[in-house]
Design a protein around this nucleic acid. Sequence first.
DNA 1: TACTCTGATGTCAGAACCTGACATGAGAGA
DNA 2: TCTCTCATGTCAGGTTCTGACATCAGAGTA
Lengths: 176, 176
Amino acid sequence: MRAAALELFEEQGYEQATVAGIAERAGVTERTFYRYFADKREVLFAGSQRLEQSLVAGIAAAPDGSNTAALVDAALTALAANFTPQQQAFARRRSAVLGANPALRERELLKLASLKAATIAAFTDRGTDEGRSILAAEVTLSVFHIAFTRWIAGAEQREFADLQREALAELRSVLG
Amino acid sequence: MRAAALELFEEQGYEQATVAGIAERAGVTERTFYRYFADKREVLFAGSQRLEQSLVAGIAAAPDGSNTAALVDAALTALAANFTPQQQAFARRRSAVLGANPALRERELLKLASLKAATIAAFTDRGTDEGRSILAAEVTLSVFHIAFTRWIAGAEQREFADLQREALAELRSVLG
DNA sequence: TACTCTGATGTCAGAACCTGACATGAGAGA
DNA sequence: TCTCTCATGTCAGGTTCTGACATCAGAGTA
């Protein structure tokens, strides 16, 4: 169904494509679609839960006594592992569809926020003060998001982790 | 209509309240509601355009030769002007409704992102490099958002600008 | 006053989204 | 073979949102 949806969105645009159409192409009924996805948009965000889990696990697995900066680093490393060169093509197609529709970008922001909330919880679980955890999560997700954007947009094949290091360095420089 | 909607959302919850009900309470038809608001959620975000305008104007009005940090400061000052103690009560009611519903938080994130995009554009208009503008906007909106959250949540009446200064200082410390 | 034009609102029909309730059917296990 | 469970189908219906056309009040003008 995810493949059918992506194809249909590419062919007709998100608004124009109907759930009935997606279901038909996937060989199921509309009702079945809604049993798998909470709404029409979710079909493009099926992987986001796995990403969140790996992020949380990465923070939990950081060495004992890690300070906040080290935890941020662990979080970024865990995130980067989810974006290999093989996935870039699919991610680009998906991203093109997302970029073309405000409703989908909206949902993407929600997923990002959910990721942020999970990160905050993971930081506080590691004993970080809550206020500090919020700021640290803000930094983590900002860096991730910028790196992701550049990963999708960049012509050359860059390592995701490199892009993150770059973004983090720039962020430091802005704050002087 | 905005008042009618807020009341109804408080009484019945966002999902339960229908657009027909809001329109009826406001003494108009459902169709008229949709002429003023693009969709059901927008009724709670009517002021966001004005906020964006004042933000952009604030950045444009910063002194010549301002560096990035000074532009961020001008942006934050312009934002803070929109949040006076008189508005706090209304903002709290609205925020409570928003917090209770994922669909509304989703829309809030979109508005925040729109604010960020406008900020980026305003920074580049002032001659800031694009990559740097993105980072600076990220910082600006993060600080604003944190301050706003605390402004809503805090029991005591704090000046919005003070809360922003505080958040900015903490952000610096996290990046160490 | 009478006319006209414009803008806001009402009315109506309908497509698409989404949900609840119940039915069906295939496969696992006793 | 029986039964239980789980995925899917079927159906009805409420809600959101839109397009097309009608109506009406008020402003401006002859």
